[in-house]
Nucleic acid binder design. Structure first.
Lengths: 212, 212
DNA sequence: CACTTATCGACCACTGTGGTCAATGAAAGG
DNA sequence: CCTTTCATTGACCACAGTGGTCGATAAGTG
């Protein structure tokens, strides 16, 4: 798909990808600056346009590469068979953090495309891929849930929504904290321990006491 | 403080304020464009620099005006005496929505100043005012909570955190939905009804059954 | 009438944009 | 060894957008 770029030194690829993901995810397509990207990636201007012919193609390649990466390094690692929702979500979070470690801004990049109104920069094919990827990915997490574990005084769907909101709120707190520091160097164990406590609380609150 | 601006037609003031809040909150100080502001506010370039001498002063005035507005139209309306946390949070949300109706991007503007790294554009006085405003405002909501209403099998603080995360997640869902549509014209009653159901669920889940 | 105040947008110097390309170094092949 | 191919650079370009100015008016006031 882009032989030249894919044939260069892996570390350099990563530097360019991460710089570009960060720039596009924070600025959106139009305001993203190729100059800032090359500065952050520490390559010359000529090289960027040698690897990717222009801004548009760079963007398209980023989407393709990103989708493929998450496909193999996130969604496919989620255990569809696991039916305990909280456990499954926990495992998914761990995998997500693993992926974030390598491509810190990838999730933000793909998530913000629609937010920035950059859909029109996507080829019909890429758009289809993204939709597909999103749906099958989500279904991997949200399907095959054993709702009989839930407390019974509330409708299943509402329990599930509450759980999702709680975890979402927690994730948001964490990422906001992490934004401040160089979290690739932070000892994550502390945070995982806190996370464990949090999930136990969730169990106590949202599961049927018999099933804890 | 800025007599010229404050003496003009109220509707025009609002148009300018909203346009500026939107621009600064989404772009940050440096990237915010006065050209886009005047276009959105439908005034001429000359007028903007007639009311506010330059970009910097415009920004400072926005902060001052915003803080004052939220002081009288948000924080002071919160009933400090209310000790039922869920009820209080509900009332605060209603007041917030009321305020959002008039200045849609004000909360975002003030909230994002630090995020965008625009603290240096603030005078020491404004900085102090903001800190003060934040702290007393927050304490108005989070102080004087009757934690004896909470379920007793979890530490109070953890129950409270869970509640906050749930409501935060819910608010986020809503604002993301609202971003898509012109929500100043939406019938909000539907959403308030849903919100009521949601809060009842929270009660059931996080309060001691005796106290529901 | 004069004098002040409100309003406009063409204009300015300047910065940053995406993209090009002639020049050079490095590697490979015969 | 020379030639050809590939990798790499950054000065350079036309252009778009920037914050800010200012002389020309129009509107109001006394």
């Amino acid at each position: 798909m882009n032989e030249i770029f894919k044939s260069i030194e892996e570390a350099k690829q990563q530097r360019i990808l991460n710089a570009a993901y960060e720039e596009f995810s924070s600025q959106g397509y139009t305001k993203a600056s190729t100059n800032r990207i090359i500065k952050k990636a520490e390559i010359s201007k000529g090289m960027l346009f040698y690897y990717f012919n222009n801004k548009q193609e760079l963007f398209e390649d980023l989407v393709d590469i990103g989708i493929e990466y998450l496909q193999t390094n996130f969604f496919e690692l989620i255990d569809e068979a696991e039916s305990d929702f909280i456990k499954k979500y926990y495992l998914a979070s761990r995998i997500k953090l693993q992926a974030l470690h390598q491509h810190r801004y990838l999730f933000e990049f793909l998530g913000n495309i629609y937010l920035h109104g950059d859909e029109d920069k996507l080829s019909a094919e890429a758009m289809h891929k993204m939709k597909d990827w999103r749906e099958t990915g989500m279904s991997r997490i949200y399907n095959n849930i054993d709702t009989s574990l839930f407390r019974t005084d509330l409708p299943k769907e509402r329990v599930m929504k509450l759980i999702i909101r709680c975890i979402g709120g927690y994730e948001r707190e964490l990422t906001e904290q992490f934004k401040m520091m160089d979290w690739t160097k932070v000892d994550l164990q502390v945070y995982w321990d806190e996370f464990d406590v949090f999930l136990e609380d969730l169990r106590k609150v949202f599961y049927n006491p018999q099933n804890i």
